[in-house]
Simulated scan of single mutants.
Amino acid sequence: MTKVTLYIAASLDGYIARSDGGIDWLSILDIEEEDYGYTDFYESIDAIVMGSKTYEVGLGFDKWPYPDKKSFVFTQRHLKSDREDVVFVSDTVQQALANIEAQGLENIWLVGGGALINSFLQHNLIDEYIISIIPTILGGGIQLFPPPTPEEKLELIHSKQYPSGLLQAHYKPIRLG
């Protein structure tokens, strides 16, 4: 059974990027010898799912940010990559997740963006939320949970505060039945 974890940073006012997709505001977290649990989390996952805009942000880094992990990029556009570890997906999130599971990939990192997160939410496909709240108010941009967002009750599993002011909260959905 696959487990999908939304592991993401958001501004205090709920944005994951600027309107133009920029994430430069995350640089306030660049503190030597602090990775906010990222390395342990990254080692625990088998594959990554992301939207095409998030994929394009990743292409803008000096090197591909998700080495040694298969990345499934949801898009309706005809994108191409020379990387063997990048797969473009146009299926529904349910069908794509079934195909990912059929490949034996169990621990899935839902990177973003907002529209893809919403699709997973609409179908109750997020098993854990690890949200890092950045002590910044952006005032606008790409929302973490763009409307319409279904209601979902969550249980806090763990939280941790870092000297940078980042607050990381780990939740599980409360699902009845």
Score class of each variant (00 low, 15 high):
32 E>I: 08
105 L>C: 06
72 F>G: 00
154 L>W: 07
24 D>G: 11
109 W>K: 01
19 S>V: 07
112 G>W: 01
17 A>T: 00
110 L>R: 08
43 E>L: 13
86 V>Q: 05
40 D>L: 15
37 G>Y: 03
172 K>T: 13
52 S>L: 07
150 P>F: 06
66 Y>R: 01
150 P>C: 12
124 N>G: 13
122 Q>P: 10
15 Y>C: 02
155 E>W: 07
164 S>E: 07
66 Y>N: 03
62 D>Q: 13
106 E>V: 11
166 L>F: 02
168 Q>F: 05
85 D>T: 09
170 H>A: 09
12 L>T: 09
112 G>T: 04
111 V>Q: 01
151 E>H: 14
27 S>I: 06
85 D>N: 13
53 K>I: 07
141 G>M: 04
66 Y>M: 01
63 K>F: 11
9 A>Y: 12
98 A>S: 13
175 R>D: 09
136 T>I: 15
104 G>W: 10
123 H>Y: 13
100 I>K: 03
136 T>W: 09
124 N>Q: 14
120 F>W: 00
168 Q>L: 06
13 D>F: 04
114 G>R: 00
39 T>W: 08
73 V>E: 03
102 A>T: 10
96 A>R: 08
155 E>P: 05
144 L>F: 10
125 L>W: 05
107 N>Y: 11
129 Y>A: 08
77 R>V: 10
71 S>H: 08
42 Y>F: 14
59 L>V: 06
60 G>K: 10
58 G>W: 00
31 I>K: 15
80 K>W: 10
152 E>F: 12
96 A>S: 14
51 G>D: 01
28 I>R: 10
16 I>K: 00
110 L>S: 00
55 Y>I: 08
83 R>P: 05
104 G>R: 12
35 D>I: 02
170 H>V: 08
128 E>R: 12
62 D>S: 13
102 A>F: 07
174 I>V: 15
134 I>S: 05
55 Y>G: 04
114 G>W: 02
173 P>Q: 05
107 N>D: 11
148 P>K: 13
132 S>E: 09
134 I>M: 07
103 Q>S: 13
69 K>W: 02
17 A>H: 00
166 L>K: 06
37 G>Q: 04
21 G>W: 00
18 R>D: 04
107 N>M: 11
51 G>H: 03
87 V>R: 12
96 A>F: 01
125 L>N: 02
